[in-house]
Design a protein around this nucleic acid. Sequence first.
DNA 1: CTCCAAAAACAACTCCAGTTGCGTTATGTG
DNA 2: CACATAACGCAACTGGAGTTGTTTTTGGAG
Lengths: 195, 195
Amino acid sequence: MEPRKRPGGRSARVRDAVRQATLAELAEHGYAGLTVENVAERSGVHKTTVYRRWGGVEGLISDALELAGEEPWPIPDTGSIEGDLRGIVQLVRNGFDDPELGPVSSAFVAAAIQDPAAARALHDFFAARHEQSAEVVRRAIERGELPDVVDPSEVIRVAVAPVYYRLFVAHEPVSEHDADRAAAAALAAARAGVL
Amino acid sequence: MEPRKRPGGRSARVRDAVRQATLAELAEHGYAGLTVENVAERSGVHKTTVYRRWGGVEGLISDALELAGEEPWPIPDTGSIEGDLRGIVQLVRNGFDDPELGPVSSAFVAAAIQDPAAARALHDFFAARHEQSAEVVRRAIERGELPDVVDPSEVIRVAVAPVYYRLFVAHEPVSEHDADRAAAAALAAARAGVL
DNA sequence: CTCCAAAAACAACTCCAGTTGCGTTATGTG
DNA sequence: CACATAACGCAACTGGAGTTGTTTTTGGAG
């Protein structure tokens, strides 16, 4: 018989310790400063164990990303598509502005650009987010606020894209006003039926 | 008298050789695979020289970025804001699609996310591009195609942002249709006067 | 042409990420 | 309760990135 793992077993404890240490290290030193040795020391797990089970920093990132992708996030329901879209975009902006979550989220983006495995994990992460967020657009279509030809997830992408673009590509600051404007632009395009 | 450097001097030769080697290495191995030793060997310059003059991989990237930012790029002039915007967004898409330029451009984005100096260099690079590209919007305003309340560079940002978002954040493929749709969305928002 | 200063080359070294072989411990099963 | 096995811990090793002290070359001024 194959030995069945129990949730409280040693392996499970090691995995949780390493995951938590990875997130803590990412928050403190970012992706560039993430080393297996530091994660091993912080978690109390020997570094060879980390290397064998996770393979390296890429594995640590991918694992942490899958974990982060499992928990859903609070989609707003303000009653109007305008309020909902603004809420989503502000949620994104605040997520990176926050000194706690910001570095970790940024680290995920940085990792995915360089590592194929992390890229796949981040792709799945955003696919899930798009799917969840698209609900506000579908509701707006049902209410008759938007034409039913629009692609719900595409509206989401166009709404949040300028925030990410400023943060990770152009490296410009993102004000609340910038975020609102991005949401308004996506809404205008959706109303015009071009999305 | 201070000795004046001439363009053909040894230092200039070394600098050019290292710059060219850096671009070649970036194209082949990307940012993650960029090492000072490989650049040194490829350029025929000793690695200590590279370390002392450039400081490390970050310096190599920043230097190459400044170089790339100096050359302007071909802003379209099709006669209509619709054609111009589509042209710009397709230009961006093709730049990353191209097997020659793509890896280098991607490497710049990756480097800037992790290194502050590269981030500043990329910021300046995009500021220059926004300024140049905004010309097509200013022309459209003069022609009366767009209301004069719109922010020209913001239209550019919103137009290109979805392409970068798909490429570097969500890690989704970007079709020509996707690029056109992004341009159309920015245009619709600009016509509505929300940008 | 000569000589000086700056920059590059060279060699030897340090340090740390990552690997390997082996011993030890814990988990679930009979 | 004892045992088999998978997972972890441990120590020693490897290799390459990055550093330092010194010597050699080169460009240009007088």
